[in-house]
């Protein structure tokens, strides 16, 4: 693991007035790594991810992509660097159909600068069929689609373009069991393709099933970053709730190492 990390967020700060939403947090992410970001509501995890996705400017700190310092002043800057985000709200325009949403903000155009709806429809059909073979409602406004179908569109939008880093904010919160399994399968597939994934969740079981490493935030601060083998679910729960590992953790770990 001597290569340069895909993403380095160094000493990131974010204040809202006197409130420190993100307090000097440093995390990194490597190629093909899934990092679970855990914490209570308001622990600062969503805020940290919004900074990485360009939706929010940090008050301080530095972001590096493949070792190169970058500045994201709007979401398109992050997307240009291959950082894609699946928001918990899905961020879909309800009155537009699936292809229009998929290409929103980066529409395909013909030589004359007109919208190339045919090409967008074709591409949308392909990528959506890959995620869900039953997806047929390509001409309906997405407001008329089911939660699962909407989620598929949001995912398709994040993986269709040349994605290197994927931020998933509670991707399974609104899904049923079979759709959750689909998302889990997809995460494994993307990981083996070398994409780095931040999985924001408060479902500790999901994180243990899918992630290589777990990062825990508490009251805006980073309180732990551990390989998934080093910690038990109880240890992580303690980090989330109390902001520290249980007293006996280091002793246990020492014993395990011996």
């Amino acid at each position: 693991m001597s290569q340069t990390p895909l993403v380095e967020m160094i000493d990131i700060e974010k204040h809202f007035g006197g409130i420190r939403a993100v307090d000097h947090v440093s995390v990194d992410l490597r190629e093909g790594e899934v990092v679970g970001l855990l914490g209570h509501n308001g622990a600062g995890k969503s805020c940290l991810m919004r900074i990485l996705s360009g939706a929010m400017a940090p008050s301080g700190g530095e972001i590096r992509i493949r070792g190169e310092a970058v500045h994201f002043s709007e979401p398109n800057d992050a997307r240009d660097m291959g950082v894609e985000t699946i928001y918990q709200t899905l961020a879909l325009a309800d009155h537009l159909d699936a292809p229009a949403n998929l290409f929103l903000g980066r529409e395909l155009k013909t030589r004359f600068g007109n919208l190339d709806d045919k090409a967008m429809l074709k591409a949308a059909r392909e990528v959506l069929a890959r995620l869900n073979p039953n997806f047929k409602n390509l001409h309906d406004p997405v407001s008329s689609l089911s939660g699962g179908q909407r989620q598929v569109i949001a995912i398709a939008r994040a993986i269709y373009f040349d994605t290197k880093v994927l931020i998933m904010d509670e991707p399974t919160a609104a899904l049923g069991p079979s759709e959750t399994a689909m998302v889990a399968g997809l995460i494994k597939e993307l990981r083996s393709a070398g994409i780095g994934i931040f999985l924001v969740s408060h479902d500790i079981h999901d994180v243990f099933d899918l992630c290589d490493r777990v990062v825990v935030m508490n009251k805006g601060r980073l309180v732990g970053s551990h390989h998934i083998d080093e910690v038990s679910k109880d240890d992580v729960l303690s980090l989330i709730v109390k902001g520290e590992l249980p007293m006996d953790w280091s002793a246990r770990n020492l014993k395990a190492a011996q």
């Binding site: 979401p75 398109n76 899905l90 961020a91 325009a93 929103l104 903000g105 600068g113 919208l115």
Partner: peptide
Amino acid sequence: HRRQIGRHIFATGSNEEASRLSGV
């Protein structure tokens, strides 16, 4: 209906925050 600006006009009115996050 045929230009990007038109698509963005619809998107903005449909969900402004989503449009912003999508790079509109």
